[in-house]
Simulated scan of single mutants.
Amino acid sequence: MLKLRNFLLTASNFVGELRLGSFRTKSDFYDKYSQTDTKAGYIIFITSLMFLTIGVISWLTLAAQ
């Protein structure tokens, strides 16, 4: 359960950085080519993150049995 909580915190941090990253004028931590400035790119990112989260939760659930 601790691994799942840490994964969800990390994923939500990435989503928050994606949403608030456009307010920063110069990003020191992330590469400038990794920013998603389009709505379609943001939707693709959120959808892939959702599938990844469901996959990890399913994998952890099956591994615990």
Results as ranks from 00 to 15, higher is better:
residue 5 R to D: 15
residue 59 W to Q: 04
residue 55 G to V: 01
residue 8 L to V: 03
residue 12 S to Q: 02
residue 61 T to W: 13
residue 31 D to A: 09
residue 35 Q to E: 13
residue 56 V to E: 02
residue 58 S to H: 05
residue 55 G to E: 02
residue 33 Y to F: 14
residue 6 N to F: 03
residue 54 I to T: 05
residue 5 R to Q: 13
residue 29 F to G: 08
residue 54 I to N: 07
residue 19 R to Y: 06
residue 30 Y to S: 11
residue 52 L to F: 15
residue 7 F to H: 08
residue 2 L to F: 11
residue 37 D to L: 08
residue 61 T to I: 13
residue 26 K to T: 07
residue 20 L to T: 10
residue 24 R to W: 07
residue 42 Y to V: 10
residue 49 L to Y: 01
residue 50 M to S: 12
residue 30 Y to T: 01
residue 49 L to N: 02
residue 5 R to N: 10
residue 10 T to F: 14
residue 9 L to T: 05
residue 7 F to L: 13
residue 5 R to F: 12
residue 36 T to D: 14
residue 36 T to G: 12
residue 20 L to Y: 06
residue 42 Y to T: 09
residue 25 T to S: 08
residue 25 T to N: 10
residue 64 A to W: 06
residue 44 I to Q: 05
residue 30 Y to H: 09
residue 62 L to I: 14
residue 7 F to P: 07
residue 49 L to K: 00
residue 13 N to Y: 11
residue 2 L to E: 15
residue 49 L to S: 09
residue 6 N to H: 07
residue 47 T to H: 01
residue 60 L to V: 07
residue 40 A to I: 06
residue 20 L to I: 08
residue 64 A to Y: 08
residue 24 R to M: 11
residue 48 S to L: 10
residue 60 L to C: 04
residue 33 Y to E: 15
residue 42 Y to S: 09
residue 31 D to M: 00
residue 56 V to Y: 05
residue 48 S to H: 01
residue 19 R to H: 01
residue 15 V to P: 04
residue 4 L to S: 06
residue 29 F to W: 06
residue 49 L to A: 08
residue 31 D to F: 03
residue 43 I to A: 15
residue 24 R to L: 15
residue 2 L to R: 00
residue 61 T to H: 02
residue 20 L to E: 12
residue 41 G to P: 08
residue 14 F to V: 06
residue 40 A to K: 01
residue 45 F to S: 05
residue 12 S to A: 13
residue 6 N to E: 15
residue 16 G to L: 07
residue 11 A to I: 08
residue 35 Q to L: 13
residue 27 S to H: 04
residue 53 T to C: 13
residue 44 I to E: 12
residue 14 F to L: 13
residue 37 D to Y: 08
residue 18 L to P: 02
residue 48 S to M: 01
residue 28 D to M: 06
residue 56 V to S: 03
residue 53 T to R: 00
residue 38 T to P: 12
residue 26 K to Q: 09
residue 27 S to M: 04
residue 18 L to K: 00
